[in-house]
């Protein structure tokens, strides 16, 4: 009873807070001074039409650097946890003295035995049950004989054909999004996630597709390092207050691909970094415990 009263009171309080927010809210009719300065500066100082990118990469560049660092830490944590689990699984198998295949073989043998027993005693009732266990053991045997992969089903024909058609387009779209971050909506994060989703499609469709973790780590580390180096270049070339200021490269022509100083380079680096990080997350989740 007390619990329900407390829950009700919490809901009422939450509703009161939201009601206050909703009553007080009104859409701004004009930009506040800071926002209007950003909008003015993005076209006149930084020479790019997309004010959002101007804020994300240049005016609030330090926040973006922190965001990329958070993403890196999250990826490193996921990789660490999954790798540790993998190692402990390997140790268990070592303790059970034998090759990696032994426990699974025992299981399939047991399933076969069960099938025999039930088949002789009560054939009609347990037929479907025993059949499913038989098919399970057969599937296990097949996967064991073909490779050491645990449970990995082949992608369907539709998925394979579709991914062959779509993955190159998705990757090109991702590259387009992050190289045109200063001209059109989107940028490094969005483009990187689009590339990672293309790689996800490839992982799902192709059983033999194996993403090289070394390559991902190298591209991720190099792009992160280059991002920091681009920020430090502003610090060195333009002065003390210009960390992550992109104006040390030429401003170029308005609306051209190579314009707005270092912004396209920085956003491409962010795109490569985010894409390889998320792809490595997906690959480590997918391959977790598969190759011992």
């Amino acid at each position: 009873m007390i619990k329900y009263l407390l829950v009700f009171a919490a809901i009422l309080g939450m509703g009161w807070i939201l009601w206050q927010l909703g009553v007080e809210f009104q859409t701004a009719q004009e930009l506040n001074p800071l926002a209007s300065e950003y909008v003015r500066g993005s076209t006149s100082d930084l020479n790019m039409p997309n004010a959002v990118t101007a804020v994300v990469v240049s005016y609030r560049g330090l926040d973006t650097l922190g965001e990329v660092t958070v993403l890196f830490l999250a990826t490193a944590g996921i990789g660490f946890l999954l790798k540790r689990k993998k190692r402990s699984a390997g140790l268990e198998i070592d303790d059970a003295d034998g090759a990696a295949n032994v426990p699974v073989c025992d299981e399939s043998a047991l399933a076969g035995l069960e099938f025999d027993a039930t088949g002789t005693t009560d054939p009609q009732n347990n037929l479907s049950n025993s059949l499913s266990s038989l098919s399970n053991s057969v599937v296990k045997n097949e996967t064991l004989s073909s490779s050491a992969v645990k449970t990995r089903t082949e992608g369907s024909e539709i998925l394979k054909t579709g991914s062959n058609l779509l993955v190159p387009m998705i990757v090109v779209l991702g590259i387009y999004i992050f190289t045109h971050g200063h001209l059109s909506p989107g940028g490094g994060f969005q483009g990187g996630v689009v590339i990672a989703s293309g790689i996800l499609m490839l992982i799902m469709a192709e059983v033999r597709f194996h993403l090289s973790h070394l390559l991902l780590h190298i591209s991720e580390s190099l792009s992160g390092l280059a991002y920091v180096a681009m920020g430090l270049a502003g610090l060195i070339l333009l002065g003390v207050h210009h960390f992550l200021d992109p104006r040390y490269l030429l401003a170029g022509k308005f609306l051209a691909l190579f314009s707005a100083g270092a912004v396209p380079v920085i956003y491409s680096l962010i795109g490569i970094k985010v894409g390889s990080e998320l792809a490595s997350v997906l690959a480590s989740i997918q391959h977790e415990g598969e190759d011992l």
């Binding site: 909506p185 989107g186 969005q190 996630v193 689009v194 989703s197 998320l278 997906l282 989740i285 977790e288």
Partner: peptide, 28 residues
């Protein structure tokens, strides 16, 4: 549109897939 792209790719795409993978592993 920037936020919309992020929400569509991360919220609708990656998060759903990661949840499904986690579900698969739990079931296994």
């Amino acid at each position: 549109p920037d936020v919309a792209m992020t929400e569509a790719t991360i919220g609708a795409g990656l998060t759903t897939v990661i949840f499904l993978y986690a579900l698969k592993h739990i079931r296994a």
